[in-house]
């Protein structure tokens, strides 16, 4: 499904590349965990795979098409239609309700959100067990609930691959486990999940795991 070949990424001012010559395949239905120490380049690799940033070299094939050199517009469309990203800090807009946050991917035009999108957003909130909390603002939700809203938002647009960057990093262990269980459930329903985590226990929850060190796959 997604094939990264010899991917490298340099950051300006850094002595070494954050990601160096990484080749990796993500197959449809995978739950791929990427682990490694802090600064090992796992988050950068996730951002490259999710087209949040461009690699400096290498190719990134999505269903046979190289998206490494895609234009900003093409990458935006990918993030809207095929990929979804969940971050460690759930990154919800604080002035929107839970439902509005889930609908955020649809709020990018003057065209009002349709009934279908609204129903999909409500369904996603139900799926992450937040039915009845549609009107709550992020500040009124716990950390775990906020992360579940972020996951619902990621999935409301019908993404086929979910990229999760340390989704349990800011949560207590019980809530973290609940989030992992939710990701597993979604994966069993057909969603491809690529997750960065520094927690080896959570890394084992996926069907595949890779480890990064010094920007390379170990």
């Amino acid at each position: 499904m997604l094939y990264a070949k010899n991917i490298s990424k340099f950051y300006q001012g850094a002595e070494n590349p954050a990601v160096r010559d990484v080749t990796l395949t993500v197959r449809q239905g995978d739950f791929l965990s990427i682990t490694g120490r802090s600064g090992s380049g796992k988050s950068t690799l996730l951002h490259v795979l999710s087209s949040l940033i461009r690699p400096d070299s290498g190719s990134l094939l999505l269903e046979g098409k190289d998206i490494a050199c895609a234009t900003d517009r093409e990458r935006t469309r990918l993030r809207k239609e095929k990929f979804a990203v969940v971050f460690q800090q759930h990154h919800l807009l604080p002035y929107l309700s839970a439902l509005e946050n889930v609908l955020l991917p649809f709020l990018d035009t003057v065209k009002p959100v349709g009934e279908r999108e609204l129903a999909s957003a409500r369904r996603m909130l139900e799926q992450v067990r937040l039915a009845g909390r549609e009107g709550s603002r992020p500040g009124q939700l716990s950390g775990g609930e906020q992360q579940r809203v972020a996951i619902a938002r990621a999935l409301a647009g019908g993404a086929r691959v979910l990229f999760a960057d340390e989704p349990t990093g800011n949560l207590d262990s019980a809530t973290g486990e609940a989030i992992i269980a939710l990701l597993q459930k979604l994966n069993h329903e057909g969603l491809t999940v690529v997750m960065v985590t520094h927690n080896p226990e959570f890394a084992r929850c996926g069907n595949r795991a890779v480890t990064m060190a010094d920007g390379r796959l170990a």
């Binding site: 935006t76 993030r79 239609e81 990203v85 955020l104 938002r153």
Partner: peptide, 10 residues
Amino acid sequence: GIMRAVGFSR
């Protein structure tokens, strides 16, 4: 950044 990440165009 959030808006761009969820697919908002420039």
